[in-house]
C-alpha cells in the first residue's frame, strides 16, 4: 500500500501529503470492538449475503452496467455526461451502447420526421419519418472512414468501437435536440401557410441541433488529455524527479500543439458531416412539401441545395 506516486509531488504537495496522513492516524482512533461485533452479529451471516452491496466489477464513475439499456443510455447522455464519457473511455459495453444510441437516434429521427411531414399530409409524414433516419445513417456511413482513419493518423487514439459510439452519441444528441424542438415545428407546421418560412425555420432548427451534436462530439472524441499519456509513461518511476518534471513540461507543450491539430481536424470533419448530410437530404427530399403540390416520395436530383435556400430567403424578403 505504501507505494510511491508515479508523478512525484512537488515540495509543496509533499507537505500536503504529510498533512493528510497526519490528519488522522491509527493511534488517534479507538474502536469499540465489542459494539462492532455485537452489531455485525445481528447482520445476516456472510454465506447468505446473496446480493453484495458492491460487486467486484462496479466502479464509481463508470456509469453503464452490464445491463446497459436504451433507457440507461438515454438518461446517461441527457443527465450524466461524465458517466457516459467514462464508459466510453473505459471501453466498457461499447457494443450495447452503440445499439442503444442507434435505437435512440432512429426513434427520435422518426418522430421528428413524422412531425415535419405532418405539415403536408399523413403520407408525407410517414415518408419523412422513414427518410430522416435514413439520411443520418447514410451520412454516418459515408463520413465514418474519414473520421476513423484521419483520426488515427493524427493520434487521437480512439478505437474503432469508441469512434462508432462517440459518433452515434453526437448523432443521438442531434436527434434528441430535434425531438425537443418538435413542438415548435408542429405548431408552425399547423399554423403557417408559408412553405418558404417553414423550410427556413427547419434549416435553423437543424443547424441548432447540429451545433449541439458537434459540441458533444468534440468534448468526447478528443478532450485535451494528451499530457496524461505522458504522465502515464512515468508509471512506477521512483527516482529522477527533475528529469520527470522537465519531460512532463515539454510533453505538455507538445500536447498543446497536438491538441490544436486535433481540434482543427474535428472542426473540418464536422463541417464535412454537415456538408454530406445536406447533400443527402437534397437527394432524399422532400421532407417538407408545399401544400399546393401533390405528395412525392422523391423529387430526383436537380438544382442545388444552397441555391434553393437562397431562393427561399429571397422569396421571404419579397425579392422574387
Amino acid at each position: 500500500m505504501n507505494k510511491q506516486h508515479q508523478f512525484l509531488p512537488t515540495d509543496d504537495f509533499a507537505e500536503i501529503s504529510r498533512l493528510w496522513q497526519n490528519s488522522t492516524t491509527n493511534d488517534s482512533l479507538t474502536l469499540n470492538n465489542e459494539a462492532i461485533i455485537a452489531h455485525i452479529a445481528t447482520i445476516a451471516p456472510l454465506e447468505h449475503n446473496a446480493a453484495p452491496t458492491v460487486s467486484k466489477r462496479s466502479s464509481l464513475f463508470s456509469p453503464l452496467s452490464e445491463r446497459t439499456s436504451f433507457m440507461q443510455t438515454l438518461m446517461a447522455i441527457l443527465q450524466n455526461r461524465e458517466r457516459f464519457i467514462q464508459s466510453i473511455l473505459a471501453k466498457e459495453h461499447l457494443r450495447l451502447m452503440a445499439a442503444a444510441l442507434l435505437a435512440i437516434s432512429c426513434v427520435s429521427f422518426f418522430v421528428y420526421g413524422f412531425v415535419l411531414g405532418l405539415q403536408h399530409s399523413l403520407l408525407q409524414a410517414l415518408s419523412s419519418a422513414v427518410k430522416l433516419p435514413l439520411l443520418f445513417l447514410l451520412t454516418i456511413i459515408i463520413t465514418f472512414p474519414t473520421l476513423f482513419i484521419f483520426g488515427s493518423l493524427i493520434g487521437i487514439g480512439r478505437t474503432f468501437m469508441q469512434t462508432v459510439v462517440i459518433l452515434l452519441g453526437g448523432t443521438a444528441i442531434i436527434s434528441l435536440a430535434l425531438v425537443a424542438l418538435s413542438p415548435v415545428t408542429l405548431l408552425f407546421g399547423m399554423t403557417t401557410s408559408s412553405y418558404a418560412f417553414f423550410k427556413l425555420l427547419n434549416v435553423g432548427i437543424f443547424v441548432v441541433a447540429w451545433f449541439l451534436g458537434a459540441a458533444f462530439f468534440r468534448a468526447i472524441y478528443a478532450p485535451p488529455v494528451s499530457a496524461g499519456a505522458v504522465l502515464r509513461v512515468h508509471h512506477g518511476d521512483d527516482d529522477e524527479t527533475s528529469l520527470q518534471a522537465s519531460s512532463v513540461a515539454l510533453s505538455e507543450e507538445q500536447a498543446d500543439n497536438h491538441t490544436k491539430v486535433q481540434a482543427y481536424f474535428i472542426r473540418f470533419w464536422f463541417l464535412l458531416y454537415g456538408f454530406v448530410a445536406v447533400q443527402i437530404s437534397w437527394m432524399l427530399r422532400p421532407f417538407v412539401c408545399s401544400s399546393s403540390l401533390e405528395f412525392q416520395l422523391l423529387r430526383g436530383l436537380r438544382d442545388n441545395v444552397y441555391g434553393d435556400i437562397l431562393y427561399s430567403i429571397a422569396h421571404i424578403l419579397g425579392l422574387r
Binding site: K3, S17, F61, G228, L231, H235
Partner: peptide, 27 residues
C-alpha cells in the same frame, strides 16, 4: 485516493476512470 498513496492503476480500478484520465485529473 491519491493522498492515500494509491497507484494510478488502483485509482483507475476503484473509480472506473482510465489511468490516463486519472493522471490528467491528478495533475
Amino acid at each position: 485516493l491519491y493522498l492515500e498513496e494509491c497507484s494510478y492503476k488502483e485509482i483507475s480500478e476503484i473509480t472506473g476512470l482510465t489511468e490516463t484520465n486519472v493522471g490528467v485529473k491528478i495533475s
